[in-house]
């Protein structure tokens, strides 16, 4: 086992904790995420004057923040995961197609990539959500649309350079079909780079979803997400800060851990950087 630096360990630990909390955090609470209790509105968290019944406090409807945060984190992670995986699949497919066909196919795809990259995405998302009303499906679609262009651009580049390697030419002269060449040879060789892109894209999607939900255009009640809980607490920031700050902190920590992990992975998997280190 090669040496893993402390920050990488810390971020892996943070992400595992976040995942466990998202999956099983609800069990820590006696209340359901949607259960209202108007007698226990805006209770502060433990250590800030609260009690064990609501360790992270309650919101304006007296819902238990611990249960809501677990639920919200689960939804946020789910959306980010689905969004980045779908975006990666879509972008990489287009990138591979562009690199294979070259010519006008490549030019068209790269043109679309450039257009996508120059659009103010959050405005497009707001418009689409406003027009079509929001649904979970549309939200996932938007998340997938966010960032596919970077996968397309990246995968086109790495595939082009892998394709011109002598080993790829050798495989071609063996009579192997192009699809097999890409899936069996090129993909394993460029997967590291794409995975790193995934880890860097993931936190951005969490942030985008949070922003949309904060604005009230993302996840709709009774479902919840971290951004939505934050948005919920917007009006009570001066009196009940914990409603916004706790989910905000969670978003921050998860995104940071993911970024640090991606950074470390890039150093690990990038052969050029590896050579420098040796």
């Amino acid at each position: 086992m090669r040496h893993i630096p402390t920050v990488a360990w810390l971020s892996i630990a943070a992400l595992v904790c976040a995942l466990l909390f998202a999956l099983f955090g609800g069990w820590l609470s006696d209340h359901a995420a949607t259960q209202q209790n108007l007698l226990a509105r805006m209770r502060p968290p433990l250590l800030f004057g609260g009690d064990l019944a609501f360790p992270l406090g309650t919101d304006r409807l007296g819902r238990d923040l611990l249960a809501r945060m677990a639920e919200g984190l689960r939804i946020s992670l789910l959306i980010a995961l689905l969004g980045s995986v779908l975006g990666a699949l879509f972008g990489c497919t287009l990138g591979f197609v562009a690199a294979h066909f070259r010519g006008w196919v490549e030019e068209t795809i790269m043109m679309v990539v450039d257009i996508q990259a120059s659009l103010p995405f959050i405005l497009i998302a707001l418009t689409l959500l406003a027009f079509f009303g929001n649904s979970f499906g549309l939200l996932i679609f938007l998340m997938a649309m966010f960032g596919w262009d970077s996968y397309a651009r990246l995968s086109r580049g790495v595939v082009l350079s892998a394709k011109s390697q002598p080993w790829a030419e050798a495989v071609r002269t063996l009579g192997v079909r192009p699809v097999a060449l890409y899936l069996r040879h090129v993909l394993p060789n460029v997967a590291g780079i794409l995975i790193v892109q995934l880890t860097l894209n993931f936190p951005q999607i969490i942030l985008l979803e949070s922003a949309l939900s904060f604005l009230g255009l993302g996840i709709q009640p009774p479902m919840t997400s971290l951004g939505q809980i934050m948005g919920d607490g917007r009006d009570y920031l001066s009196t009940s800060w914990w409603i916004s700050v706790l989910p905000g902190l969670t978003i921050f920590l998860v995104s940071l851990a993911m970024c640090v992990l991606g950074d470390w992975l890039r150093d690990r998997l990038d052969p050029a950087l590896q050579r420098v280190r040796q």
């Binding site: 002598p166 080993w167 050798a170 495989v171 002269t173 063996l174 009579g175 079909r177 040879h185």
Partner: peptide
């Protein structure tokens, strides 16, 4: 592809002529 098997090639640089992950 059907004709490929008749002609084969050995490349100049043995270090880059094999898929490193195969």
């Amino acid at each position: 592809r059907a004709l490929r098997r008749h002609i084969q090639m050995v490349f100049q640089d043995p270090y880059s002529a094999l898929d490193p992950r195969q």
